[in-house]
Design a protein around this nucleic acid. Structure first.
Length: 488
RNA sequence: GCCAAGGUGGCAGAGUCCGGCCCAACGCAUCCGCCUGCAGAGCGGAACCCCCGCCGGUUCAAAUCCGGCCCUUGGCUCCA
């Protein structure tokens, strides 16, 4: 069974064949760190993470690079008292890394920053100028789109249809309106900074960082960074380049143009694009202000529920964010979690010490593995993968409903569930902090009292206690083997 | 206007590449039963939809292929 991926470059779903049969070079277009990351970013991260995990599951070793754009007018627009562009960027990078950790994302190998790659950027621009793909104009350097014949191949745009890139002031400096800046002379455009600075007012807007270059002082253009950083860390041709759908044009189109013009080699073999998270009417985005930050979301729903939600559809279809869709994900996660916990408890009970074999359970395990793999190999169909997990949870529940347990089968079932859930970055291991242990003891104490009341037939009192616990978020379930509970 | 992705049952969301197992997966919501002091969870079953944006075509057979149309979202300016 081979992995198939939908490649934006060709528009086709193709068998995945990395350049090296064992190693995969994965690049993800990271954030411009000018705002706290929101759920839309989280969705892309989680899908890239799942792609990473599935590739490793298939036996590839994955070199994963994800950049931070720390040089940008939007960052300059956030500069406050006693700060500069770099300190603002550092602040948001720290926040972003914390958000990533809270989402249980595998670490990338490198998180390169634009500010640390200016020499490589300048070198790349020089190469392009020397090769005739770029030209200097008034201290800035522009890419000449007419020099790169395949310009537009990713987004299927005709050159004539492309209106213009960049701000109006720079149009005069360009030969062709579709040309884009590789290097921009001078400091940040104050007008652009003011535009992004919601409400903030300076007598003079901050300038941002400036570097020397063969064309005079200036700042790197908006698209070269990714070419320079990915080629620095992953070489001229990488296997998978992932980013949001909103980056296809012009960002990724320009990356291809720059990189391939400079090296004469294909830049990325497979381009995968994550569709966007949207509210009822529009995409979630920083600039629209209709976002929920990752920190708020993790705080409110927890990592597992969030990841179940974010993988509820394919990476390449749009997803609706609403209270209802989150609640639904919560149900699915809890069904998995309950089933896993029930099975675990069953394994500890005397009824597990049998030699019975439940063929249906064992068949369900195999089916789960097969359909999970089939779903993931079909362009990372995470909803299909979830469905496979849920089917196994159902089979496990049916088995545990029986009198006697198939010990080995049950063990395999829980191991399978945990392993495959792990590919989606879901974890059944609750936090084992001292606080949690204390909470356990406290709840158990209350439940012991409640059992006494129940034994004495004082159901009103028992129900009161249960309601009290429920109001604290503790879910109580009575079973034949005594009460079960789940902490919030 | 141009480019791209998509329109699937009450919701959500697979399936569309490789037409039949799709009288449409998984989950939620509704109803009934089992279990239970009750509730929840779990299990079993049922109903709703009766159909896969609209129109036409190909085919023994289409949600799935072909053509036209309508609509939505994203991009064409920073953007996961």
């Amino acid at each position: 069974m081979t992995l198939n991926v939908k490649n934006t470059l060709t528009g086709e779903t193709e068998p995945f064949e990395p350049r090296d049969p064992d190693d995969v070079l994965l690049y993800y277009c990271g954030l411009t760190v000018s705002d706290p990351p929101h759920l839309g970013h989280a969705r892309s991260w989680v899908h890239v993470d799942v792609i990473h995990r599935w590739l490793e599951h298939l036996g590839y070793s994955v070199r994963h690079v994800e950049n931070f754009t720390d040089v940008n007018e939007k960052i300059v627009a956030r500069v406050g008292e006693g700060e500069d562009e770099a300190t603002v960027a550092e602040r948001y990078i720290a926040e972003t890394l914390a958000a990533m950790r809270s989402l249980n994302l595998l670490r990338a190998e490198v998180y390169p920053r634009v500010s640390e790659h200016v020499p490589e950027i300048i070198e790349l621009v020089e190469t392009l100028v020397e090769a005739g793909y770029a030209y200097e104009s008034a201290g800035s350097v522009y890419f000449d789109v007419t020099a790169f014949e395949e310009y537009g191949k990713l987004s299927n745009q005709e050159l004539a249809e492309i209106e213009s890139q960049g701000d109006p002031d720079e149009r005069a400096e360009k030969r062709n309106p579709a040309d884009f800046a590789l290097w921009k002379a001078g400091g940040v455009d104050p007008g652009a900074v003011r535009e992004h600075a919601k409400g903030a007012s300076w007598e003079r807007p901050p300038e941002g960082q400036i570097w020397d270059s063969p064309w005079g002082p200036g700042r790197p253009g908006w698209h070269v960074e990714c070419s320079a950083m990915s080629m620095t860390h992953l070489g001229k041709t990488l296997d998978i380049h992932v980013g949001g759908r909103d980056l296809v044009f012009p960002h990724h189109e320009n990356e291809i143009a720059q990189s391939e013009a400079a090296t004469g080699k294909p830049f990325a073999r497979y381009w995968l694009h994550c569709e966007l998270l949207r509210t009822d009417e529009e995409k979630m985005s920083s600039s629209l202000g209709n976002f929920v930050t990752v920190a708020e979301a993790v705080d409110r729903w927890g990592t597992n529920v969030l990841r179940t939600f974010l993988t509820a559809g394919s990476y390449n279809s749009e997803q609706l964010y609403s209270d209802g869709t989150i609640a639904e994900a919560e149900e699915r996660w809890e069904r998995l979690e309950r089933s896993h916990e029930r099975a675990r408890a069953a394994l500890d009970s005397p009824a597990a010490r049998t030699k019975v074999e439940d063929e249906r359970l064992r068949a369900a395990i195999e089916e789960c593995r097969e359909s999970f793999a089939a779903a993931m190999n079909d362009d990372f169909n995470t909803r299909g993968a979830q469905s496979a997990l849920l089917e196994l949870a159902g089979a496990t529940n049916r088995h545990v409903d029986r009198e006697e347990y198939d010990y080995r089968g049950l063990r395999r079932a829980t191991a399978c569930l945990a392993e495959l859930a792990g590919v989606l970055g879901l974890s059944f291991d609750g936090e084992s902090t001292g606080q949690a242990a204390l909470a356990d003891e406290a709840v158990e104490l209350v439940l012991a009292v409640r059992e006494e009341e129940r034994a004495a037939g004082n159901y009103d009192r028992a129900d009161e206690l249960r309601a009290e616990l429920e109001s604290l978020g503790v879910e109580v379930q009575d079973t034949d083997d005594g009460p079960n509970y789940r902490l919030p």
